[in-house]
Computed example of a mutant assay.
Amino acid sequence: IPGWVHSWLLLTMHITQLNRECLLHLFSFLDKDSRKSLARTCSQLHDVFEDPALWPLLHFRSLTELKKDNFLLGPALRSLSICWHSSRVQVCNIEDWLKSTFQRSICSRHESLVSDFLLQVCDRCPNLASVTLSGCGHVTDDCLARLLRCCPRLRALRLENCARVTNRTLAAVAAHGCALQTLHVDFCRNVSAAGLRRLRAACPRLALRAEHSAAMIPDRLPRSPASGAALRKLPPR
């Protein structure tokens, strides 16, 4: 057999002699891919990989990482961050009615990834304490409201450049964010100054930050004789 395979087998045989506490400590130094690779070598290490205590923190740098099987969602999860910095974020943040067919095609490949993932988090991670979402242009108010209801221990929610977030999320924070201590809604253009004032009045102890959000131009439906009349009937945001 190749030399590197022989060395890997020797390493595997050696570390399996460690007790579980030591194996968990060893796994804690590895990234998600390395943990998964090591777990494939034997059933004992796979069992360690699936220990919920190994997964109190999850950080994702792209949306494609959400589709992998190299992590575990469970009640031990305390901190979750999805920070996507890509040119595609700009396409996600374009108003739907302004997108070209090509842009809609780009979004269709990933628009439900974050929301679907957060629904799994709602079902499996009731002890979540911190969530950071950056560049998640398709995440919705409804999804965030469900997260607040299902994770009553959530203390920090940080949202940045999430174009679909509106005052409805602020209302959900006031209604369901009983444990929430920190809320950031930075560069979320559909959050209004009036909504922020209402939240500050309802939750005076909340550490609220909204960098540039209320100062940005919110989405507006295209005006036409018919749509203009309909818009005048809508209640203010």
Rank of each mutant, 00 (worst) to 15 (best):
G3A: 06
W4I: 14
L9E: 15
L9T: 12
T12S: 07
H14W: 02
I15F: 09
H25F: 01
L26I: 01
F27H: 10
K36P: 04
S37A: 15
A39Q: 11
S43G: 06
Q44P: 02
L45K: 00
H46E: 13
D51E: 05
S62M: 09
T64L: 14
L66K: 13
K67G: 11
K67E: 05
L72T: 07
L72H: 15
P75R: 05
R78D: 10
L80Y: 05
R88Y: 07
Q90C: 15
S100M: 06
F102I: 08
I106G: 03
C107L: 05
S108W: 10
P126Q: 07
T132N: 06
T132L: 03
L133I: 08
S134V: 08
C136I: 03
T140W: 06
T140A: 10
D141P: 13
C151Y: 09
L159Q: 05
E160A: 14
N167P: 04
N167A: 02
N167T: 04
V173R: 05
A174D: 01
G177F: 00
Q181D: 01
R189H: 12
A194K: 12
R197Q: 10
L199K: 06
A202I: 04
A207H: 15
E211I: 11
H212L: 04
A214H: 01
P222Y: 09
R223H: 11
S227I: 14
K233N: 08
